[in-house]
Amino acid sequence: MTAGEKGLVVEGLCKRYGDHTAVDGVSFVLPPGGSLAIVGESGSGKTTTVRMLVGLERADGGTVRLDGHDRSARPRGREERLARARAVQMVFQDPYLSLDPRITVRGCLDEVLRLHTALDAAGRAARVADLLDRVGLGAREADALPRGLSGGQRQRVAIARALAVEPRVLVLDEAVAALDVSIQAQILDLLREIRREAGIGYLFVTHDLAVVRHVADDVLVLRSGTVVESGPVDRVLGSPEHPYTRLLLSSVPRRGWDPAEVTGRG
């Protein structure tokens, strides 16, 4: 434990699959309540990076610390496992696959509270209602199974589920990529509001630079598992220093956009 250190500190994170190095020495700091976006094309290692942070993958090297607590090694025992879960939660890309098809929205939130809090049934019911209210869902959705909900509603449930443990960091892995554009905006607004109220740190994984501008303070550009550029969003997206960042920016379709320029075959 490093005394006095605050926020999520990642140093020299590595992950190899056989000969392929998916993540190669990634380092960054997410201050408490901050919002960092990790961008890069498919296969740049951004998802692998955050999967190591939440413990879904084991890192081959490097360290991850949250408020000074190391979380790189496998958790020892139930207490440590629960403590880590309370520190970092995750919202997955596909809301159609990230909810248990057999369990109602209420049941889904209730079991998280049962695992992480000492609340009684009435207390949990109140918290469930509170959580649903916070993500803009009502009693009708509470008793529905996931298949009775739209994509946007499901993603709201997934966010409520992650918020139920009151994490300090929320990892959002392409959390709006599978949604319609109008629903995307709603969810992003909701996330901004939650961050303002709860002071949770956000770690966005996205390939969508519009999303980055909308929700992030800082941005980290990954390419082939290494960080090519990082800094405040305005600076990096406004005046990119690395050619790869410029390429990413010019790949965004806009008025007068010519795909041939991007692919270099113009």
Partner: peptide, 14 residues
């Protein structure tokens, strides 16, 4: 491999 199972793992269930 489905995210709902991974979500349970991230929640801290054994």
């Amino acid at each position: 491999a489905r995210p709902y199972i991974e979500a349970y793992v991230v929640q801290g269930w054994s």
